[in-house]
Design a protein around this nucleic acid. Structure first.
Lengths: 112, 112
DNA sequence: TATTGATGCATAATAAAATTAGGTATAAAT
DNA sequence: ATTTATACCTAATTTTATTATGCATCAATA
């Protein structure tokens, strides 16, 4: 993710969560959704995005389906049951990470 | 950091903050402090810790001083003015990261 | 007294994941 | 006609962490 301050390791968690919420998305759509949700502050880096999607697919967390739209191809991804489970554990991990950061850096991270 | 769910990129921020708070610390001491602050949940991985300290020193954010204690050597690190500034910007970055994660993943990260 | 665990530093090989920097092509808008 | 948006991709490099060691001192304990 460029210009984003997003820490390494969080990308796949974000992708999984997006797919879990929206059911079925293609890569470009995810870049737009992320922009929308973050008021244009986060732009997915495609050089990271596509390899990440391929990895998730290879790991059995996503399935892909190529669909022609007009004269162009879209590759739609869907989360698998395994992916659903994995999403939950990654979100839990992220919460734990934030908690640890609060313990280590002070209470400055609570934005609740 | 092993077993820690700490995302890549956060280690140097933690080290800088520890040094900013404590004035002067050596590597092993940092591993103990991190354990203490996180109720033994986070253990710094030495294979990441020492290279990270060396990098911070090379970048001029820390200075090092080797001190004999008994018959053993300790390498004390101190944060530089440049390091102080950098610490602030990294903490701001981390807060921004958490904010973005909340926007993308839902309000589940607010532990305030 | 021999051994284990804690203290204290370090590096080398490997792996994981990002950034940078391209490339290809269709379609819409100016 | 050219630019912008849509839509996918990969290769080289960089960054950072993990894994696996290595060396050495010192205290506790079996």
């Amino acid at each position: 993710m460029n210009n984003s301050q997003l820490y390494k390791g969080s990308l796949s968690t974000v992708l999984l969560k997006l797919l879990k919420e929206n059911g079925r998305m293609y890569g470009y759509e995810m870049t737009q959704k992320v922009k929308e949700l973050t008021a244009n502050e986060v732009a997915l880096n495609e050089g990271a995005l596509y390899p990440a999607l391929h990895r998730l697919e290879a790991d059995g967390l996503l399935t892909a389906e190529v669909v022609p739209v007009g004269n162009r191809m879209r590759k739609y991804y869907t989360i698998t049951p395994k992916g659903q489970t994995e999403t939950e554990s990654r979100l839990a991990e992220l919460e734990e990470f934030v908690r640890h950061m609060q313990q280590l850096l002070g209470a400055k991270l609570s934005l609740g």
